[in-house]
Structures are given as structure tokens and as C-alpha cells.
């Protein structure tokens, strides 16, 4: 569904992404992991067209996404830091987003109800806590029932109760029609939510494959340990 071919991006002198090749297929759920500053968010922002890559091809369902925008109708995005116009009310934002995405969507308001966002629809964003903004952001990502969901550290800042709601929502939505791309630093969470893993380090791909394969080849039962074992076994070699 999304193919990344030779993606290269430099911020000043820093190589954020270096010659990256990746495929994201429909019906699968991907964990994008790596240390801080390894290029996870840059990859996601490139796919969304927020970051303009220096080189390489990005395609969504066979057509290039560079300088295009229609493909974003298929994407629901939850950014790492939920930022909204401060003086806007929650309800106003929801109405605005619906207005800005004209067309026929099946509106999925499950999270709006689960997080009881209707109760705070009269509150302005500057009065909201980081976690509450994160809830609005999650509800917004799922609102238009998009086939591709890109969640950048979705559970960071959420309370345990809200995390469980989000996790079960993701589990329920994992159908053969949808593609999930999730970054997180919590390995146990990714084990629950994803089936594939892409490991990035300093903008380079170190591993891409299914979590099961990684576990069986390293003879580890947990994702975190399997990653560590994989890294120790092949310190600098790139595996695809």
C-alpha cells in the first residue's frame, strides 16, 4: 500500500533518513521502532508530505505522493505531540475537520464517545491537559475511518484507562482492509498491536520483517529481548 524507495533526507548536516527501502502492506500492522532521533518521525512525516525528502520515491497505492495531496484522504494521523489552535474549542475543531474533508465518509465516533469528548466540546484547547489533547488527536485519527492509520507514539501521555481504550480500538480495527503504522518505545504494547517490525537506527534500516520470524530466529520470547539479540548478532550489517 505504501512503498518507500531510496528515501533520503538531511537536516543540515544530520542524515535523518539514509537510503531507506520499505514496504507497508494492506492488512498488516507495523511497529516502527528505533532509538530517539533514529528517523521514525521523519519517515512518518515524509509519508504525510509534511517533510519533503531530498531524494527517493514514496508511493501510496502505486502513485507517487510527492506534490500530491489526494492520497491523504486515506490516512488518519495521530502526531507525536498533539498541537491544536489554542483558542479553538474542541467542538469547533471537530466541526471544522468535518467541513474540511468534504465527501462521503463513514464517521467513526467510537473514540469520541469512549473518551467522552462531547462533555468538553465547549472547552478551548489551551485549557486542556496534554493527555486530553492526545485523546482528541486519537479520536480525530479514527474519525473518517481511513484505511491507513499512522500513530506516532499514540499512548505517550495517556492515562492507563485511556491507553486500554485506544489499544482495544486498534485491535478491533485491525482488519484485512487496514494498514497500521505505529511507533512506540513500549515493546510489550507493540507486541500486542503489531505483527511486523521495522527497526531504524540513525536513519538506516537495521531490520524489517515479522515479529514471529525475529523471535524464532533469535530464540527469544519477547520482542524487546529479540531486538537486543538481533542487534548484538549483527552489529552494523543491514538486514532487509
Amino acid at each position: 500500500m505504501i512503498t518507500v524507495r531510496g528515501l533520503y533526507k538531511k537536516f543540515g548536516k544530520l542524515e535523518a533518513l539514509s537510503n531507506l527501502y520499505l514496504d507497508f502492506e494492506k492488512g498488516k500492522s507495523y511497529a516502527v521502532i528505533g532509538p530517539n532521533g533514529s528517523g521514525k518521525t521523519t519517515l512518518i512525516k515524509s509519508i504525510l508530505g509534511l517533510v519533503i525528502p531530498d531524494e527517493g520515491q514514496l508511493q501510496c497505492e502505486g502513485t507517487s505522493i510527492l506534490n500530491h495531496w489526494h492520497y491523504r484522504e486515506k490516512i488518519g494521523y495521530m502526531p507525536q505531540f498533539a498541537t491544536f489552535p489554542n483558542h479553538l474549542k474542541v467542538g469547533q475543531l471537530m466541526e471544522m475537520m468535518k467541513d474540511l474533508r468534504p465527501g462521503h465518509y463513514v464517521l467513526d465516533e467510537e473514540l469520541i464517545q469512549a473518551y467522552q469528548l462531547a462533555d468538553i466540546s465547549n472547552k478551548r484547547f489551551y485549557t486542556l491537559s496534554g493527555g486530553t489533547r492526545q485523546k482528541v488527536s486519537a479520536a480525530l485519527a479514527f474519525l473518517f475511518s481511513p484505511p491507513i492509520l499512522i500513530l506516532d507514539e499514540p499512548t505517550a501521555g495517556l492515562d492507563p484507562y485511556a491507553v486500554e481504550i485506544l489499544k482495544s480500538k486498534i485491535q478491533n480495527e485491525r482488519t484485512s482492509e487496514k494498514l497500521f503504522m505505529i511507533t512506540s518505545h513500549i515493546m510489550s504494547e507493540l507486541e500486542e498491536l503489531t505483527s511486523e517490525v521495522a527497526y531504524l537506527d540513525s536513519g538506516k534500516l537495521r531490520y524489517a520483517g515479522s515479529i514471529e520470524d525475529l523471535k524464532s530466529s533469535t530464540r527469544e520470547s519477547r520482542l524487546g529481548k529479540a531486538i537486543v539479540a538481533m542487534l548484538q548478532r549483527q552489529p552494523e550489517k543491514t538486514t532487509v
Partner: peptide
């Protein structure tokens, strides 16, 4: 000040 707003708009299906 409307940087957040612009970021939000650009992650939607809207032309830059």
C-alpha cells in the same frame, strides 16, 4: 502563532 493550525491542515487531504 498559527503554525499548529497549518500543521493540522497539511496532514489533512488539503493542497499545500
Amino acid at each position: 502563532n498559527s503554525y499548529e493550525f497549518i500543521e493540522l491542515l497539511l496532514s489533512q487531504p488539503i493542497n499545500r
